[in-house]
Design a protein around this nucleic acid. Sequence first.
DNA 1: ACATAACGCAACCTCCTGGTTGCATTTAAT
DNA 2: ATTAAATGCAACCAGGAGGTTGCGTTATGT
Lengths: 100, 100
Amino acid sequence: MFAALGDPTRLAIFDRLADGKPRSISVLSDDADMTRQAVTKHLRVLEAAGLVQNHRVGRESQYAFCPEQLAEARAYLDQVAGRWESALMRLKSFVEDDEA
Amino acid sequence: MFAALGDPTRLAIFDRLADGKPRSISVLSDDADMTRQAVTKHLRVLEAAGLVQNHRVGRESQYAFCPEQLAEARAYLDQVAGRWESALMRLKSFVEDDEA
DNA sequence: ACATAACGCAACCTCCTGGTTGCATTTAAT
DNA sequence: ATTAAATGCAACCAGGAGGTTGCGTTATGT
């Protein structure tokens, strides 16, 4: 999932979809100075990472933002930050014990 | 920075360093079923992304967790989630207006 | 019915990435 | 002084990622 957002093109597409509005592949590839096929591949990657959902309607397939994996990423970062801070706390109390 | 955490090996290294303790390259590569050089490259990438800091001490170079970029990533995800939710709110109020 | 728009699939190409090996260099240990 | 540990640098290699092109297929619109 970090890998999916790691590519700048993909991050841009993801960012565009973050307003919740579904968009078709051709709409997304119109202003992406890239082939439609390339955009399609990126959307597949984002979909595989669970960051985006696909819903075929008529002859066009609409891709839309999907917030679940995003929440998971936030949770992970929070957890890492938490570990870091608790390690700091232990260090702090150790130093204070040493001074006492 | 998402790209830096996108690689599973790098994420693992980063995760190990998240306790705040600095570790030398050879210590990190001991249990990484990989060459020391490979680990070195990964550490360089993490350092370039600002996720980790390097401090040479004697003949060994210690790499340590660096929380600043992490905070930035969290801020970005929060911002995206915020955009998403506000879009939901607008949709909700639109529907309610329609019903009234 | 026919033209066209939106898409899928597959082959292909190039370049970067993750990884290795070999050798040189600096620092510590005895 | 010598040996061994920890690292740096550079060359090299295989594979996958990002991208393109060509062609076929399914809906839409007129």
